[in-house]
Design a protein around this nucleic acid. Structure first.
Length: 286
DNA sequence: ACAGGATCCTGGGGGC
DNA sequence: TGCCCCCAGGATCCTG
């Protein structure tokens, strides 16, 4: 579910509520998460104080004063929120961390595709990210590195955007939004993009994500920020979820096709396919 | 190397 | 109202 803008919003919401707070109690449910919780982590958290809340790609990193790091991934339906004292515990709440101000940090996840893992140190977290091949953040993505990555593969550009080892944090919504912004068809081959197209896409990814963060991300079904507030970017979609609706640039009805198993929304007029691209770039009667 | 499908899960919506 | 099928902000694993 949540992509970079949603995760960033959670992090920004949680920061003032968590930093300086001490963990006084930990309880975990019995249902297995994608990242399984280990009971012995509770003792390592109790009495520790949160010192910082950061993000890397779609990962949330909660830094403890012991040097330990609680790393959370929201999967498709994860919610990491701080609840006020007495607030009802919703179904599918799997982890509860009691805080010294009587509030609770809660992890809720309907589909259980996410979870939380405790690492002993920031070095261990870095090693984990390195091992998993997590790519660079989109805002600091080096243009040359990006172009080299595209040149190295003939995969469809939409699939490359979703690949967390190429660039971290982009998911299905913002991949479609960025491709629309850059006027690129989702099935274009990465290594067939021109340098200007590649640059356009890199900038489109950054600008779409930046704007979405300003709007606190998108709430379609389950997403809420760290204080329980929904996002607002779902009202700004120009491609995602707009099948059949008029393109905001040219009024052509948007279409949807599946790329790498994911629905991909695009404007057939503004985002010409590889074939019509070739035709367009060729002299009229050759 | 890459596409495509299945898998992990639950819930909501549409069609009948 | 109920049932069945399909779909969903992710990621990984396997096959062809």
């Amino acid at each position: 579910m949540p992509e970079l803008p949603e995760v960033e919003t959670v992090v920004r919401d949680l920061r003032p509520l968590l930093v300086g707070r001490r963990v006084v109690r930990v309880s975990a449910g019995h249902q297995r998460l994608r990242q399984p919780w280990r009971p012995e982590w509770a003792a390592r958290l109790k009495g520790r104080r949160f010192e910082a809340v950061t993000r890397r790609g779609k990962w949330i990193v909660l830094e403890l004063d012991s040097g330990a790091r609680l790393v959370v991934h929201l999967g498709m339906t994860g919610q990491l929120t701080v609840a006020a004292p007495g607030e009802a515990v919703l179904d599918h709440t799997h982890l509860v961390f009691g805080l010294d101000d009587k509030h609770e940090l809660r992890y809720r996840d309907i589909r259980r595709f996410g979870g939380a893992t405790l690492f002993a140190s920031s070095a261990d977290v870095e090693a984990f990210f390195l091992d998993s091949g997590l790519g660079p953040e989109p805002f600091t993505l080096d243009p040359g590195v990006w172009c080299d990555a595209l040149a190295a593969t003939s995969r469809q550009i939409k699939a490359v955007l979703l690949d967390q080892t190429v660039v971290a944090g982009v998911g299905n919504i913002y991949a479609d939004e960025a491709l629309f912004d850059a006027k690129l068809h989702p099935t274009r081959r990465a290594n067939e993009l021109t340098r200007p197209e590649a640059d356009r896409l890199r900038k489109a990814v950054a600008s779409v994500l930046t704007y979405a963060i300003e709007k606190r991300g998108s709430t379609i079904r389950n997403y809420v920020g760290g204080s329980g507030l929904a996002g607002g970017y779902q009202d700004e979609f120009r491609a995602y979820g707009r099948r059949g609706e008029p393109c905001r640039r040219c009024r052509t009805p948007l279409e949807v096709l599946r790329v790498g198993g994911r629905a991909s929304h695009y404007c057939p007029s503004c985002q010409p396919s590889a074939i019509s691209c070739q035709q367009a770039g060729r002299p009229a009667d050759s």
